[in-house]
Amino acid sequence: MSARVHSRRGASALVAVGIATAIAMAGCIVFGVVAAFNPAIPAAVSDLTKTLLQVVGVAFLGACASLLTTQFQNRHAELAAEDELRREARRHTEEALRTLLTEAIDNYHRVKRARRTLRAKTGPVDRGVLDIASYDECMSVLMDVQLELEQWKRFTKSLPAYQQVVVSASRPDGRPSTLADEFATAERFLNEVLDEYAASWRSVRDASTGLPLSRFPVLCAFFDSASFRPGAAIPLSRIQHAVAASLTMTADDIDSAESGRAGR
């Protein structure tokens, strides 16, 4: 049973005790007044009535003190339970953010590794050659990352733990950027590279000695830092910094809650 239910019951009990005591005291007072003005009632009975009034009064005060103490204890337990719920929610949020941060870092590193490997195998853009084995190897990695980015885009758009993260950037329309926006930007950039891969795979496969890299403008843009940075590197970096900052704030919030409870 919750502390709040106990609190309500305690208040009801206090009212009930007050009513019962008031009725008892009223009865004793009436009887005392009648005894005082009626010589037929012995003085001992009058004295007994006074004693009963004192006993009822003391009992009422004791009951009030007991019920108030119970009310205080129940309220304290209620506040402690609410604090625990808030801390548990923060712990879940922090765990979700840590998972996201780990995944974002891993995806960024995988994309950079695949990009560097393929660029080293093909050679310079102006005279490089793309063969099917190297192409397949790189695009296989990008496919996996693209699917994960698409999944995280949905998660960060719908789950409260991610919606509260503030990204220090603005969209072209002037509104603040969200994690879902940044994931969407990176995912869209990789999608363009994969679309070109799907459209040109057969021709690359059929070329026994490979094809000139210059025939693949989207892949060349993937190699070019001027395109790669705004398309993938910067969005994924913003995600990492925003989540890391939120984790620091979450930890501070937990410490603050613990200190607040200790001070009560």
Rank of each mutant, 00 (worst) to 15 (best):
M143S: 15
S170P: 01
V165R: 00
G128K: 11
Q146P: 01
T156Y: 03
I105T: 12
T122H: 01
Q151D: 15
L149R: 00
V141K: 02
S168E: 12
I105Q: 12
K121L: 07
Y162Q: 05
L149E: 02
P160V: 05
D144W: 10
L130S: 08
L130Y: 07
A120K: 11
R110Q: 13
T117A: 10
A114L: 09
I105P: 00
D126H: 09
I132E: 01
D106G: 00
S134F: 02
M143V: 15
V141R: 02
Q163C: 09
F155W: 11
V167P: 07
A169P: 03
L118C: 01
L118H: 06
V145Q: 02
T156E: 08
S158V: 13
A133L: 06
D144P: 02
Q164I: 12
S134R: 02
K153P: 01
E137S: 15
I132P: 01
V141S: 05
Q164T: 10
W152Y: 14
L118Y: 00
E150M: 10
V141A: 05
R154A: 12
I105L: 10
I105C: 06
S170C: 09
G128V: 08
S140A: 12
D126Y: 06
R119E: 11
T156H: 06
S158D: 14
Q151L: 14
V125G: 08
H109R: 15
G123S: 07
L130I: 11
V111W: 04
V145N: 02
R110E: 10
L142Q: 04
V165W: 01
A169T: 04
R110M: 05
Q151R: 14
Q146G: 02
D131W: 02
L147C: 08
A120H: 15
S140Y: 07
L130Q: 10
D106R: 08
I132G: 00
G123T: 05
E137Y: 14
